[in-house]
Amino acid sequence: MRWCLSIICSLFIVNILSGCMGQETNASQSHMAYQSQLDEVRSAVLNYRKDTGVLPILNSTQNTPIYEKYRIDFKRLVPQYMSEPPSNAYSKGGYFEYVLIHPETDPQVKVFDLTLVNKVQEIEQQIQDYRYNKGYSPLGGVITEKRYKIDFKDLGYKTPPKVISPYSGKPLSFIMDNHSHVYINYLPDIEQAYKKSKQHVREGEDLRKLLVEHSLYVPVKSVPYTVKNNRVIFLVK
């Protein structure tokens, strides 16, 4: 009897420990940014700028998208301005690239998830391969000028791929421009943010700022959106 009780107790303890380890694993693998980490990085950035007169950012080009343009160079900050990069930073093997917005006026630290970037690049490469073999892109329909749906069946997908929005936690689809570049369609998030916003937005003004202002994340691999007749539309230039 004691032998049976001993086995039962041992199994019970193993199950508890396994559950705890599973929770820790899930927590470490979750794609979650934290305000405290962004605040720490911003403090280091501002102190670096105070001492050097410049911002600790990596080189970019004029063609680099605005929300990917000012990536933070942690090699300039460690160890003098912070002991090490955040644990979820790409330079530490994490999912996030840390970037600055408003670098000239009021530098703010945000992040974007590299798994979203990787998915866009994966689809874009498939489209390039398709174009090479077929001579044209897998268009699934016209959304508006220079914005197209993608025919994922032609690319071999049973169902269209999605990514999870860092803003709403809901699935987002993909679109393609006239150069066959792929983007995440943040339209549902933009519409929701616009409805909640009390700001007056002019026609032609980029609405992506509404996502950035109240979030830790930037809309990576995105296109501009604006409003016309109180309706959110793609801003095509």
Results as ranks from 00 to 15, higher is better:
M1K: 13
R2L: 06
R2E: 12
C4N: 11
L5E: 12
S6M: 12
I8A: 09
C9W: 13
C9N: 13
F12T: 11
I16L: 09
G22K: 05
N26P: 04
S30D: 12
M32V: 15
Y34V: 12
Q37V: 07
D39M: 07
V41K: 07
R42F: 05
R42I: 03
A44F: 03
V45T: 00
N47V: 01
Y48N: 05
K50D: 11
T52D: 04
V54H: 10
L55S: 10
T61M: 01
Q62S: 15
N63D: 10
N63Y: 12
P65W: 04
Y67C: 03
Y67T: 02
V78R: 07
V78G: 09
E84Y: 11
P86H: 08
P86W: 01
S87C: 02
N88F: 08
Y90D: 04
V99W: 06
H102M: 10
P103H: 09
E104M: 06
T105I: 12
D106F: 01
Q108K: 06
Q108N: 08
F112T: 06
L114Y: 05
N118D: 15
K119D: 04
E122R: 11
I127R: 02
Q128W: 09
P138N: 05
G141W: 05
V142I: 09
V142R: 15
I143N: 11
I143V: 10
T144I: 01
E145P: 00
K146Q: 15
Y148P: 13
D151N: 15
K153V: 03
G156V: 05
Y157C: 02
K158W: 10
T159Q: 05
T159M: 02
V163W: 00
S165D: 13
S165L: 00
P166H: 08
S173H: 08
S173N: 14
D177E: 06
N178R: 08
N178F: 08
S180T: 10
V182L: 06
Q192D: 14
Q192G: 03
Y194M: 06
Q199G: 05
Q199A: 13
E203K: 14
L211A: 10
H214Y: 14
H214C: 10
S215Y: 02
Y217V: 06
S222L: 08
S222K: 00
N229G: 15
N229R: 14
N230T: 08
R231F: 04
V232K: 04
K237Y: 12
